[in-house]
Structure formats: C-alpha cells, structure tokens
C-alpha cells in the first residue's frame, strides 16, 4: 500500500482515479519534456558566443500559424482531461441502491459513528467488504473533512447540512481516515480508521456487538477493558497517558491528585470526578486547558465509563 506513489487502490473506483492520474501525468510529462526541453535547448544553443554580435538576431515577432496551433492543441487537451475527470467523478457520485449506510458526525476532534441499527463507535468504522457503503456526514461544531486516501475520495463535513460519500470497498483491511479541513488545535490528531471486514466476519461482529460486550468481554479484567475503550473512543487524540502534553490534561497520575480548576478551586481527582469529566466534561474544567471536550454520555455506556475509570486508576 505504501509504495512511493501510493498506488495500490482499495477499490475499483480508486483504480479509475489512479488511471486518470496516470493519464494526466503522461500528458503532463510529454508537455513537460517538450517545453522544458526546448527552453533548455534554446538557452544553451543560442547563448551569446561573441560579446558584440547581439544585433544579428532575426527580428521574428510572431507566427500566426504556430500561435493558433498552441492555442488549439492545449484547448483540445484540456477538454479531454476535463471530460475524463468529470466522468470518473460522476460515477463516484451516483447513488448506489442498497448501500450500507453509516452516519458519521465530526466534532473537535473525533468522529462519532452511528449505524442504522443503533450501534455507535468512535473513530472506528466497520463495514463489510464487497458491498457499497454510503457515509452520511455531518459536523456539530466547525468544518471537518473525511478523507480516505486509499479510496482516493474525500468530502467536507459541514455544520448545518449533510453531505454524502460513497465507496465500494473491495478488499478487507484497515484503512486510514484523515480530517482534511482545518478544525483547530487537534486537527492533525483527528484520525480514524475504516475497517473493511470479510462478509462473514462482519456478520459475526454485528451479532457480537449487538449482545453488548458478549461473553468474552465479561471475563476481561475491568481495567484492561477500560484501556481498550480508552483507545477506541479517541481519548488519546487529545489526552496523553505518558509524559507528553496534548490538547487535554495528561491522564497519568491523575487519579488521587489535586486538580486545579478554572476559577481557582481545587478538587481531588477521585472516581466521581473522573466519571463526571467523561460524561459532562464542561462541569469542571482544568485550569489552563480549553473547554472543548465533547460529552461521551451517549457514546460510552455507564458500564464502560466505570471500566475506563478503573483503567485510569492504574496509571500511576
């Protein structure tokens, strides 16, 4: 996937974009070598050899035929490129009946994913391979972007309106999602993944997720589960668990510490404080940090919040 020009498209649609790219590159390359070649050739060939002979140059002031040709030929070439680019684009935008729909809402600085059957997730979208997917995109604070480099597509996410994007994931795999419209301090940390699963595996996963955690999860230690949720819910986009500062406060050593708040009061970082800060982050804002964290009330169920708090307690 990571050869130098990134070819290795994740869908046939992306393959067509690559073909267009190559076509423009070939046409561009031809004109590149033609014009740069002539530029350099003329510059070398007609350099002044004797200092005083400059007035013996011919007084050529133009050539109607040549000029007509180099207006006509580029015009034809650009119309061809336009047409090809437009066709590929239009095919990308044709609504596909029966596509899997996924709602994605962006906010500073994460993606909230919601499936039609009510499942939710943060920063991770799972879809079955071989079936069209329709992303229904929105944003709740500022502009964001939804860029799938492996599929060669992107779409802006705009507060107050809905935009859509279709992809046809052919190959299972885990693909990068970038935010491409500048959205503030955490813009470059606003990453997510599109996980394309083989049909059967996807079906199993849907069933599994539908039974809320499943049996396997029950046996998982609470702190370990908390760590898993912390990573998948996008907390680490803004919070560090090592020595590093990110947008929000560092989480290591938070439990049991004295936390200075905006406004001067100091609270103890106990379980209730940690819980409240996940479901109602605006209630107690740590001094020196912007009040930008969204609530996770809807996206992390209470059981899971408990698990996250347990995990945080282990970070000493």
């Amino acid at each position: 996937m990571d050869n130098i020009l990134a070819f290795g498209a994740a869908s046939s649609q992306a393959g067509r974009v690559d073909a267009l790219f190559v076509m423009i590159a070939v046409i561009g390359g031809f004109f590149f070598f033609l014009t740069q070649g002539l530029l350099i050739y003329f510059a070398v060939k007609y350099r002044r050899r004797q200092p005083d002979r400059d007035n013996e140059t011919p007084a050529i002031t133009g050539s109607p035929l040549l000029e007509f040709l180099w207006i006509l030929i580029p015009s034809i070439v650009v119309v061809v490129i336009f047409y090809y680019g437009w066709r590929v684009y239009t095919d990308q935008r044709i609504p596909v009946a029966g596509a899997t729909e996924v709602h994605v809402n962006a906010r500073q600085w994460l993606y909230e994913v919601k499936y039609p059957d009510g499942r939710t997730a943060i920063n991770e979208i799972r879809v079955p391979a071989g079936k069209s997917v329709k992303f229904i995109l929105s944003a709740s604070d500022v502009l964001h972007g939804f860029y799938l480099p492996d599929f060669r597509v992107k779409m802006d996410m705009i507060p107050g309106r809905v935009t859509t994007l279709w992809v046809q994931p052919d190959r299972p795999g885990s693909y990068q999602i970038f935010c491409t419209v500048y959205c503030g301090t955490g813009h470059s940390n606003m990453l997510a993944r599109l996980i394309v699963m083989p049909q059967g595996e996807y079906g199993e996963w849907v069933e599994h997720a539908g039974r809320e955690g499943g049996e396997g999860a029950e046996r998982e230690p609470l702190a370990a589960r908390g760590e898993r949720i912390l990573k998948s819910a996008g907390c680490l986009n803004c919070h560090a668990v090592d020595g590093k500062e990110k947008i929000g406060p560092n989480l290591r050593g938070l439990y049991g510490s004295k936390v200075p708040l905006e406004g001067g009061t100091i609270v103890t970082g106990d379980e209730e404080y940690l819980r409240e800060s996940i479901v109602d982050p605006g209630a107690k804002v740590v001094k020196g940090y912007p009040n930008v964290m969204p609530t996770f009330k809807a996206s992390i169920p209470p059981e899971d919040v408990k698990a996250v708090v347990e995990y945080l307690k282990t970070l000493k």
């Binding site: 590159a25 490129i81 336009f82 680019g85 437009w86 972007g145 860029y147």
Partner: peptide, 25 residues
C-alpha cells in the same frame, strides 16, 4: 521552468476526480 511544473500539476487539481483525491493534501 518552475511555472511549467506548477502549471502542469494544475490539471490534476482541475480534473474533478483527481481533485477529490488531492484536495487539501
């Protein structure tokens, strides 16, 4: 010389399908 490079990379961004890929990169 440089403007030719800039100019010839324009069609990648002018063509719709490749623009959608390359925009904001």
């Amino acid at each position: 010389f440089l403007f030719i490079v800039g100019g010839l990379t324009g069609p990648f961004l002018g063509a719709l399908a490749t623009n959608v890929q390359l925009h904001d990169t």
